[in-house]
Amino acid sequence: MTSNSAAAAQYGGRQQSPIQRVQHLLHSYPFLSPAILLIITMAAFTALNSRFALPANLSSLMEQAAIVALLGVGQTLIILTAGIDLSCGAIAILSMMLMGTLASTNGVPGPLAIILGILFGVAAGFVNGLLITRLNLPPFIVTLGTLSVFTAVALLYSGGSSIQGSKMPDIMTALGNSFPVGSFRISYGVIVVVLTYIVVGFVLSQTAWGRHVYAVGDDAESARLSGVPSKRILISVYTVAGLIYGITAWVLIGRSGAATPNAIPQGNLESITAVVIGGTSLFGGRGRLVGTLLGALIVWSFSRGLSLAGVDQQWRLFAIGVLVIVAVSIDQWIRKVKA
């Protein structure tokens, strides 16, 4: 026994090159690379313009990142199952227009309008999940279709025009209100985002459902043979994502002070970008939710940092594009890790 464990220890401790050690470390802690990247990004932009580190700037950075970060929670769940959701922004927009119209035009009480809007998000996610599992369609195709459908319905339903926050009950825009914390200002919307991360992060890492999400994403057939109800897990993941998009709609009304059909034109793709930069693998089964939060902060750090540095905004798009490709390349490399 002792000789065996000594042999095992020797086997495990066989010399690794520094690069291999880095690969191992990133493999064991998938959120390490976005965390390092965020620190570098923020340090670099602070060096370029010291105003970047001011509490006022960081506060508005948080506000801007909040929407993508929240959509990213649903997107992370779906990408962990090796799926993708192109319709997340569209679901949030339609939920938002529904909430706004119900509360203003139809005179539905605020809390009820919010609940109905969120329930619509849940139903939309459930439909995505149903189409993917029952008709065996690829998630990319299903959500590409529902992206167009929900976008069209939102525009038709709203007539393409916004509903001002002043026409809605106060509770609809309440999440846009903020309070001071030291020299920072934090909105209730940001609190909702943080709470969502804590709850979903807990469920993913501490419950059987979370394990099953990873298992289905990593190897759906093996998971099924092991007794994981793969289809039920997939449907529940898309439904929970829909719930989160519905909550996003509420936060979005608070942030925009209105229900606008073009509030987040880039929401679908930016949420995927945040997930990927956050170290979650597009091939499923690998990643940490907190990475997505870091990813959203990185995306918006670039945006604000470049504008503070006086650089043309188009470079932001350029930089994000490069980041996505680098992030996926790093993921591919990490996946090749050997014992």
């Binding site: 394990r211 298992a215 093996s222 092991s226 007794g227």
Partner: peptide
């Protein structure tokens, strides 16, 4: 085909489902 999940650890695999 073994039916183990590569990304999960040994204990998680033993107790999967």
């Amino acid at each position: 085909q073994l039916a183990v999940i590569p990304a999960l650890d040994i204990a998680s695999n033993l107790y999967l489902a």
